[in-house]
């Protein structure tokens, strides 16, 4: 079976400073991978590079997604190919309704795939189904994208967008940060509902807490721009117990 995502010896830098020093990671369809690590270890950089953030320069290595060289694609092409990044800091778009924004996104993806644009009725039906899943208020749909949203609402909106866009690979960048336990459960339920044989998930997080609710198949520890340890879900518990200091020593940072 070809893996869904294959990252080989990925080196990346920003403004001449190398942040990732050779990452290897393979995600097969149906798997959930957690990437944990201390602050500044390069977790978010990795997430953003997968989605195509152009401020990072890939200096070595490759990223293959469903057999395609991902690094050749623009961010919007990656999204259309089925990659979704749930942002750590979702952007506010004043004056543009959630509905409009999401419809523009859905129809951009559909166009890329050679499918007809959804009309207003079909789109509304799709949205309502997913809103239920995330316990979203319909009133939220007519509000400006993320404007005036609480931290929890923003994160929930990210997972809602993910549910509507139905990606093959979802990358969650610190989706748990800033959430209280109730909001965390809602977000985790939303993610779990999307787990399945057709989808891969990478959850980037600093804390083990999220992984109580989104139980990973694999856990990788990223430190100093390298994956220093990989294991099963029990590795997350070990980290919770011991903290990151022993990892730092191992990574030589």
């Amino acid at each position: 079976m070809t893996p869904m995502l294959e990252i080989k010896n990925l080196h990346a830098s920003i403004e001449g400073n190398e942040i990732l020093h050779g990452i290897d990671l393979t995600v097969n369809t149906g798997e959930v991978h957690a990437i944990m690590g201390p602050n500044g270890s390069g977790k978010s950089t990795l997430a953003q590079i997968i989605a195509g953030r152009e401020v990072y320069e890939v200096t070595q290595g490759e990223v293959i997604f469903s057999g395609r060289n991902l690094l050749e694609l623009k961010p919007e092409e990656r999204a259309c190919e089925g990659i979704f990044l749930a942002f750590q800091y979702p952007v506010e778009i004043p004056g543009v309704s959630n509905t409009y924004f999401l419809k523009a996104a859905v129809n951009a993806v559909r166009k890329y795939r050679g499918e007809e644009a959804l009309d207003a009725m079909d789109f509304l039906a799709l949205m309502r189904g997913k809103m239920k899943l995330l316990g979203m208020d319909e009133e939220l749909m007519n509000r400006s994208v993320n404007e005036g949203f609480s931290g929890g609402e923003k994160k929930r909106n990210e997972i809602f967008q993910m549910a509507v866009l139905d990606p093959k690979l979802a990358v969650l960048d610190e989706t748990d940060s800033g959430l209280d336990i109730d909001a965390l459960k809602v977000v985790a339920n939303g993610v779990n509902a999307l787990r399945g044989p057709g989808r891969g998930i990478i959850a980037v997080t600093h804390y083990q807490r999220l992984l109580n609710y989104i139980v990973p198949d694999f856990v990788h520890v990223l430190a100093g721009g390298r994956i220093v340890k990989s294991g099963g879900k029990e590795l997350a518990l070990e980290l919770e117990e011991k903290g990151y200091s022993w990892i730092d020593e191992k990574a030589g940072v």
């Binding site: 989605a51 919007e76 952007v91 004043p94 951009a108 993806v109």
Partner: peptide
Amino acid sequence: EHIFYLRARGISFDEARSIMTYA
């Protein structure tokens, strides 16, 4: 980063720029 957010949802660079200009 704002443009990237929209592009990461599949929206083209030009459309992303128009939407953020409107915003």
